[in-house]
Design a protein around this nucleic acid. Structure first.
Lengths: 381, 381
DNA sequence: TTGAAAGCGCTAACAC
DNA sequence: GTGTTAGCGCTTTCAA
């Protein structure tokens, strides 16, 4: 199918000789009518060039700004762009110009508000630089991660931000082979040579621990999603460190898994036989929810019977009663940092890999209270 | 910069004559070495063709399946694809073949878990068909919506799913002009000619109303985000209808805005002077949070003092105490329906515009209780 | 400073 | 059934 517009071939001179008015008339008569006839749906650089009476190269130069163009032509080109509502085809400019103005983002699960917020932060960060975002989710599996990555990478994005679905991060090979600059966010991949943007997990854990310790709690249980993730281990290590440094035994931890039902079940089995715990520290979103859900089910009141510290800080944590003491991750800042680092790599920076470590903020609220008495088994029963 | 690989020009015959083994040897010696030398980062269809000893046309035919290819060549091509880890450049095939295998998704705010879930559902739906998702957020403004839409559309996606930031939906013009098939999700644009996937908002409202009415509540307050949105008005209309049909006066409503702080402030001002309300029905996420937050601030207990119905159904609503009675939107199904409709349009369906209306499910939990006594002003004070 | 033209990687139309 | 080739809409030499 032939879709391009056939224009009577005009020399450069004739285009320049013609006045702006007659050029427009000419354009209307020919180009617009032709466009309507062939039902060409999108306007291309050629249409702009015709209307402005310049070559497509000049249009490109005006738009990319990579080459000086005389002021008068600039005006004509911009006018034509506005009149036609022209927007350069991004696939085409990507194809010709190398990497495209997209950044690919891979997260384990968009349903998890933390990852969703991260994507939101990233989107806000990149759009300022004229980039778009293309998202994929691994939904837990390394196989799916690799597969999604492959199709995302097939757009030849300018860069990639990835939250690996596990520490092994086998897909790193896929990414590296593609040559696309990337940064690993949130999760730290063991011994992976890559730029990383994480949170100071150790400090975050330590802050929670200090808080409950300061309130007099000694028998604390940690609700971790899974110890297979290094960032979780780091958070736990921070808690452990705080206890150990005071000569106290390290708190126990439960792996609650990655969904609410599992979390609740596992915690419930634990709490059923538990007599001493006076505080829970959650290390993830579902840890928080699992703890809350279990305590409710067991009829235990927060903070009267047990204190609870949540992880992440969402609006609902402020709204419910009691509002939750929690560790707030600087999601916004993570997005910005990841983009800053990625941007630098895209622009050719080739220093050593960096790990940006952002600080969390501990937000004390009403779900934690001074230690009174330990959980009585008779109550929990 | 010249990046393509210079191969000694070989005739088709010579390629066919060579055995598979010698072809590979040949390839290794020439192509791989050359690729390394020029540091060409990505493998193209040409590389595959060389290694398989076929023409690029054949490679394309094997991969797209649009033309029959002899079994033996299929095997060779697939082998080469696997060995090289070839993934067709999506921008290039889009450029040549028309619309690309991406669907653009525009939502007001990715930070809102409802929209995030919708994007997640969409991502899950489209990837089964080999599509990717490119996201943009309007963050409240019609101007930003139009701007983001323009860049998203510049990728010439196969389709678009949009949740307009307001009912005016001025950007509809931008979209329509691009010729990209689109479906409007969640929000209903007044008098817009487009496929729509929404929820049966009226029924959802009615279900909430029936629930509280059945519990004996008569003095109910509705927490709406803003009545400027038609889906919110529809939800309210459902509630109103239930009351009116029983000969009861329509419940009052408060516009709580779109963030937690505003919501809490406005509701707080209302509740301060309120003596009669015995139940709140929230019509959005922030309505729910605002109500909860205000009641806590005022020291009112749920459901002892006031019953509360939330909108949307998130994990935290099940975890907190009391767990929230709520209207669950079928987000998953919305994503699937939107994609199904869009897919049909992409494939050329040109019937009249449809509005798919999905049913919500009312989930009764412990935040609603039988009407006891109305709120005493002395308590609220 | 500008226009002409090559070519990015691919698909589809066309030869054979 | 397979190879060759013309572009898709751009960016970027290369001439003028």
């Amino acid at each position: 199918m032939r879709r391009s517009i056939e224009l009577p071939r005009r020399s450069a001179e004739s285009a320049c000789d013609r006045s702006a008015r007659s050029r427009k008339t000419f354009f209307r008569k020919n180009v617009l009518r032709e466009r309507a006839r062939v039902r060409k749906p999108v306007v291309s650089i050629k249409d702009v060039a015709s209307l402005a009476g310049v070559s497509i190269g000049t249009v490109s130069n005006v738009l990319t700004g990579k080459r000086a163009v005389k002021a008068e032509l600039q005006v004509r080109v911009r006018g034509a762009v506005a009149e036609l509502g022209y927007e350069p085809d991004r696939s085409a400019s990507r194809l010709r110009g190398g990497r495209g103005r997209v950044v690919a983002v891979m997260v384990p699960d968009l349903t998890n508000p933390f990852f969703a917020s991260l994507v939101a932060a990233l989107e806000a960060a990149v759009r300022g630089d004229g980039y778009d975002i293309i998202v994929g989710t691994s939904n837990g599996g390394p196989a799916e991660e690799a597969a999604r990555l492959a199709t995302l990478l097939a757009w030849r994005p300018g860069g990639l931000v990835v939250v690996p679905c596990d520490d092994a991060f086998a897909s790193a090979a896929v990414i590296r082979r593609s040559g696309v600059p990337f940064v690993v966010a949130d999760r730290v991949a063991d011994g992976i040579d890559a730029d990383q943007v994480t949170v100071d997990n150790r400090a975050a854990g330590a802050a929670s621990a200090e808080h409950v310790l300061g309130l007099g709690h000694r028998d604390v249980v940690v609700a971790a999603s899974t110890m297979a993730l290094r960032n979780i281990r780091e958070r736990y290590a921070g808690i452990e460190g705080a206890f150990l440094s005071r000569g106290l035994p390290a708190p126990r931890h439960i792996e609650v898994g990655l969904d609410l039902e599992t979390a609740t079940d596992r915690l419930d089995a634990f709490v059923r036989d538990e007599c001493r715990t006076s505080a829970f520290i959650a290390l993830t979103n579902f840890g928080t929810l699992g703890v809350l859900s279990t305590l409710r089910r067991r009829g235990l009141r927060v903070p009267d019977d047990v204190s609870v510290i949540g992880f992440d800080d969402y609006a609902w944590m402020r709204a419910v009663s009691p509002p939750l003491s929690a560790v707030r991750q600087p999601v916004e800042a993570m997005g910005q940092a990841a983009w800053a680092r990625l941007r630098a790599r895209i622009d050719g920076a080739d220093g050593p890999f960096e790990r940006v470590r952002l600080e969390c903020e501990f937000v004390p609220r009403a779900s934690t209270a001074a230690f009174g008495k330990p959980l009585g088994c008779e109550r929990a029963a």
